[in-house]
């Protein structure tokens, strides 16, 4: 494992923990897209089914369990514990427009036409667009709390670091996975507009808006 992969994983973990703590500490999930969080729970579930079939390392298993656990905990906080604070009226992105095409694509373009591999591919494709309901919500309300922008920053940074990891692996290990790379590039591009705003107006501002 190289440093970019490790910092990518830690950045991903930071994003997940930041969001969980924010909701827990403020007892509110205002401004958070429950739909994006359901999609991420679906992403982790469909990708980490190999927990049941193969063991790779203690690190690998631990991180997967934490990711899945946190994803469902977040969904639980939004849709059950702090449901009253959930801003459903602004969380109106039609997720079927993501899940259905992504599901179709996973059937058509994959490494191996087997259930686990199709589900893995589905999770890779879905992850690349899973943040769209959240970005849509921010563009609709015209603002995001600072802590939400930190969450988005670390979530975007994670896939950007993975891109560098894949370049590294290609040069030093001769390894590349075209499905993960293309989806990872798409995923990172979706955050570019946000990254720009985060860097240029993030510091010292309490709110950040994404133009529609």
């Amino acid at each position: 494992m190289n440093i970019f992969r490790l910092t990518g994983d830690l950045s991903h973990l930071a994003a997940i923990i930041i969001l969980l703590l924010k909701i827990w500490k403020t007892r509110s999930c205002a401004g958070i897209s429950g739909k994006s969080q359901i999609l991420f729970a679906l992403v982790f579930t469909s990708r980490y089914l190999d927990l049941l079939t193969s063991f790779i390392s203690l690190y690998n298993t631990t991180m997967k369990v934490i990711y899945i656990g946190c994803a469902y905990a977040t969904v639980y906080l939004i849709y059950a514990k702090f449901k009253a604070t959930y801003d459903g009226n602004h969380d109106t992105f039609r997720v079927e427009f993501l899940v259905v095409p992504v599901g179709g694509l996973a059937f058509l373009v994959n490494h191996d036409f087997s259930p686990l591999e199709i589900l893995w591919t589905f999770s890779i494709y879905l992850e690349s667009v899973a943040i769209l309901p959240q970005l849509f919500m921010i563009s609709k309300t015209g603002e995001a709390e600072t802590i939400t922008t930190h969450y988005l920053f670390f979530l975007g940074l994670y896939r950007a670091l993975y891109l560098i990891n894949w370049i590294w692996r290609f040069y030093f290990e001769g390894f590349f996975d075209m499905i993960a790379i293309v989806a990872g590039v798409v995923q990172t591009i979706l955050y570019c507009d946000f990254f720009y705003l985060y860097v240029t107006k993030g510091e010292g501002r309490s709110q950040l808006s994404i133009p529609t």
Partner: peptide, 10 residues
């Protein structure tokens, strides 16, 4: 393409 190598990533 080695699937086990790929699944090492999260």
């Amino acid at each position: 393409d080695d699937p086990s190598q790929k699944k090492d990533e999260l």
